[in-house]
Design a protein around this nucleic acid. Structure first.
Lengths: 157, 157
DNA sequence: CCTATAAAGATGCATATGCAAGTTTTGAGC
DNA sequence: GCTCAAAACTTGCATATGCATCTTTATAGG
């Protein structure tokens, strides 16, 4: 069947995300944080003190989605939102001391999961897979996908 | 940095899922259904009249997660849950006539997105990517990952 | 036939996300 | 300086998911 759901790129991607997400979540469980939360803390540290928009863009997330997702992390004192003096519309996200300590803890657990992933899947293979996914994430792919839609809709050539 | 969040397999997978999910959701928007919902309807049709557990396994989902996710679809009359006479604990999921009609509608929209995906990413490349993701989804990978964890925890050899 | 355990779901609670709207602050143009 | 469109967030609403726990059935042993 040409409409076999098992061939849907989106569905397969979601399934893989659910499975791998669970494996990483299990590994991070002792810390009380989810893999997504550890990822956000780590990204904030890497970026310094990004604004909501900057972090959302880097994490390929919707701005409002990020806003919701950060709630538990600010509530628990790992992150702090500080209005930018130069542009009071923007909020700079910073790691608190508590957040840095928690990140140090989750980073070790994450390392364990990441190492296991690479050991089982293969280091090179993992690099190659991430490269492919990286392309899917790129604005170039998104643009090409949307352009293809326009063309298909306006001509059958 | 060895802990660069941009190298996290789980994070990259999630980002790709968010991006591709949005592209497919946009394509299906005219139908009022999400890509995940179309996927479930299509899988139910493919499987016939699966039980919750069977569908959850096929979709790589948690049973309770599936239970929640089906709510909107049963509420809107696309799916029906019928207790299995032979095992009254189980519930067989079936497409209603309304569900079949809606699936016919979403299938066309999905086809358009799927075609665009393959046109931009490449047919062969898409097949290869799905094969890699298929391995991540397999019980074999999950077992190997968990076993690697046990070994690491019990010996440093 | 009775009982303990397992199997299949359902439900409460919490995080993960996205869209549509509403609020506040900037900045451009008059 | 005033006015309006745009930018950066926040919030309400809805779906997507998973874990723990509880209820209802089946079933294996006695």
């Amino acid at each position: 069947m040409t409409d076999d759901p098992s061939t849907c790129s989106n569905a397969v991607l979601r399934q893989a995300m659910r499975r791998i997400g669970q494996l990483y979540d299990d590994a991070l469980a002792p810390s009380g944080l989810r893999a997504t939360q550890h990822g956000l803390l780590a990204t904030v540290r890497t970026m310094g003190a990004p604004t909501m928009r900057e972090l959302a863009e880097r994490a390929v997330m919707d701005l409002s989605g990020l806003s919701h997702t950060l709630k538990p992390l600010t509530r628990d004192g790992y992150l702090q939102l500080v209005p930018d003096p130069r542009d009071r519309r923007a909020r700079r996200i910073t790691l608190t001391v508590k957040g840095e300590n928690k990140l140090a803890e989750t980073a070790k657990l994450w390392r364990g999961a990441q190492d296991r992933f690479e050991a089982v899947f293969g280091k090179e293979r993992a690099v190659a897979l991430k490269a492919e996914l990286g392309f899917l994430i790129s604005p170039a792919f998104q643009d090409a996908f949307n352009k293809a839609g326009t063309e298909t809709a306006t001509s059958t050539c």
